[in-house]
Amino acid sequence: MRNNEIKTLEEKARIIRKHIVEMIYNAGSGHPGGSLSAADILTALYFKVMRHDPKNPRWEDRDRFILSKGHAAPALYAALAESGYFPVNELLTLRKLGSRLQGHPDMRKFPGIEASTGSEGQGLSIGIGASLYAKLNRKLYRVYVMIGDGENDCGQIWEAAMSASHFKTDNLTVILDRNGLQLDGATREIMGIEPLSDKWKAFGWKVIEINGHSFREILNAFDHAKNVKGKPTIIIAHTVKGKGVSFMEGNVSFHGKPPNREEYEQAMKELG
């Protein structure tokens, strides 16, 4: 059962990666690296893990996903379009004047986007707000927040980390996209964040470490997180920035740069 399911997810992720590359190439700007590293996790969330209904995007009991690292918007838009929130051909309007697909997610543009993000460090706190709302109003939905590893440099992340465990937000799961790179270089060189797992544990979180490109590990981690009581869970997903396109993999220069024509063609060929 799960084998077939995983095949389907892998295929979906491949399509989402193609969308990401095409959107950013077509827009002439954007962030391929962190969109590609997040693609598998977003695929798992939108096509397996989360309870949501693209036909009824404001469904009160839907699970919420907040992309705190808002620059990975192309990955989110591709997942939303493939889920049926809007037509796939709208993806090519990314970053164009009048488009709903803003450079960074704008929750007022259409339902399905749960928070406006782009300034790093704020999405986790927003997720805590959504999670407190659920507790206060006896709602059973879960809240998922994706943060970047460079985003761990932000002080507000740690304010949020402290308060989430203080408020026992066990309906909240964070995915940390541990791709090892931020804008200017390796996280190890720009701002050391290790021991990451110990830090989050010390802040009172359940920590799960996985390979963020293995659907088996991703799905198991989300299953596990659902059963953790009394504290929030963070899944530290070890990923490769630019995953799926050979010359973008682990290449910091593709953090925020679109491929040129040749690179675009090469990337699309590699993604099949």
């Binding site: 706190s125 927003i126 507000q156």
Partner: peptide, 10 residues
């Protein structure tokens, strides 16, 4: 900072 963004989430 955390408070303002939590306010937004709520």
């Amino acid at each position: 900072q955390n408070m303002m963004s939590i306010a937004a989430g709520l």
